[in-house]
Amino acid sequence: MPAILIRLDPARLANPDLDLRYDIPERLAQASGGLVKSSGFDYEDCTDAMLIYLSTSSVTEAMRFVVAMLDDEVVHGNRLADAAQVGVSELSPKEATRYTVVYPSGKAGALLP
């Protein structure tokens, strides 16, 4: 099942609340009717960045929900678009080691983490 990775830079968040690691996947699962599922979280080596792993059967469809949340919602006082990068992989979250950045568009093509 393909994977999506949301990378949040806490230095760019107004409120880097650790509950984001639970609330973002829950909201995406609810908004997408279960298309987007949580696959865990981690922290990037050598930084404080939060990594939120998601799985989906359709990256194209799932990204509509991810981008809408990042662009339009405020979560725990944070406009997530200011702090987020999103990468995708055709491999499952457990198999993927690199993700191709698709959001924001100005960073597209780079690799995460």
Rank of each mutant, 00 (worst) to 15 (best):
residue 85 Q to H: 10
residue 68 A to V: 01
residue 77 G to C: 06
residue 87 G to N: 01
residue 73 E to H: 14
residue 84 A to H: 11
residue 79 R to L: 05
residue 38 S to P: 06
residue 69 M to H: 06
residue 72 D to C: 06
residue 86 V to R: 13
residue 52 I to M: 14
residue 78 N to M: 12
residue 38 S to Y: 13
residue 74 V to D: 06
residue 55 S to Q: 14
residue 47 T to H: 06
residue 48 D to Y: 03
residue 35 L to P: 08
residue 42 D to R: 14
residue 71 D to N: 15
residue 74 V to C: 07
residue 43 Y to P: 01
residue 56 T to I: 11
residue 65 F to W: 15
residue 69 M to Q: 13
residue 82 D to Q: 15
residue 75 V to K: 04
residue 47 T to E: 08
residue 63 M to C: 02
residue 46 C to N: 10
residue 78 N to T: 13
residue 37 K to Q: 14
residue 77 G to L: 09
residue 76 H to L: 07
residue 48 D to E: 07
residue 44 E to L: 04
residue 39 S to C: 11
residue 53 Y to F: 10
residue 88 V to T: 15
residue 43 Y to D: 02
residue 61 E to S: 02
residue 81 A to I: 08
residue 51 L to Y: 05
residue 73 E to K: 14
residue 65 F to G: 04
residue 78 N to D: 12
residue 90 E to C: 00
residue 75 V to S: 01
residue 66 V to T: 05
residue 58 S to G: 03
residue 35 L to S: 06
residue 40 G to A: 05
residue 65 F to V: 07
residue 52 I to D: 12
residue 54 L to K: 14
residue 70 L to M: 08
residue 41 F to G: 05
residue 76 H to T: 02
residue 62 A to W: 09
residue 73 E to P: 06
residue 85 Q to M: 13
residue 57 S to R: 11
residue 86 V to M: 08
residue 71 D to S: 14
residue 60 T to V: 02
residue 44 E to C: 00
residue 60 T to P: 00
residue 50 M to F: 14
residue 91 L to C: 01
residue 84 A to W: 10
residue 41 F to M: 12
residue 73 E to T: 14
residue 67 V to T: 13
residue 92 S to Q: 09
residue 54 L to N: 09
residue 77 G to M: 11
residue 89 S to W: 09
residue 69 M to Y: 06
residue 38 S to I: 12
residue 77 G to N: 12
residue 85 Q to S: 09
residue 80 L to T: 07
residue 51 L to M: 12
residue 92 S to M: 06
residue 68 A to M: 05
residue 61 E to V: 00
residue 85 Q to V: 05
residue 37 K to A: 10
residue 88 V to Q: 10
residue 83 A to V: 06
residue 43 Y to L: 12
residue 58 S to T: 03
residue 57 S to Y: 09
residue 66 V to H: 01
residue 54 L to M: 11
residue 57 S to V: 08
residue 47 T to A: 02
residue 60 T to C: 00
residue 43 Y to S: 05
residue 90 E to V: 03
residue 73 E to L: 12
residue 35 L to R: 15
residue 37 K to S: 08
residue 64 R to A: 05
residue 52 I to L: 15
residue 46 C to Y: 09
residue 61 E to G: 00
residue 72 D to I: 04
residue 84 A to I: 06
residue 50 M to P: 03
residue 44 E to N: 04
residue 61 E to L: 01
residue 64 R to T: 10
residue 69 M to G: 01
residue 71 D to G: 05
residue 67 V to A: 04
residue 41 F to A: 14
residue 71 D to H: 14
residue 61 E to W: 00
residue 75 V to A: 02
residue 56 T to W: 13
residue 69 M to E: 12
residue 44 E to V: 03
residue 46 C to P: 00
residue 75 V to G: 01
residue 44 E to I: 03
residue 72 D to A: 08
residue 75 V to M: 09
residue 49 A to K: 15
residue 84 A to N: 13
residue 44 E to R: 10
residue 82 D to A: 15
residue 44 E to A: 02
residue 50 M to G: 04
residue 67 V to Q: 10
residue 89 S to T: 11
residue 82 D to N: 15
residue 76 H to Q: 08
residue 73 E to D: 15
residue 56 T to F: 09
residue 56 T to H: 12
residue 53 Y to E: 04
residue 54 L to E: 11
residue 64 R to F: 02
residue 91 L to F: 07
residue 70 L to W: 02
residue 54 L to R: 13
residue 59 V to P: 03
residue 49 A to F: 09
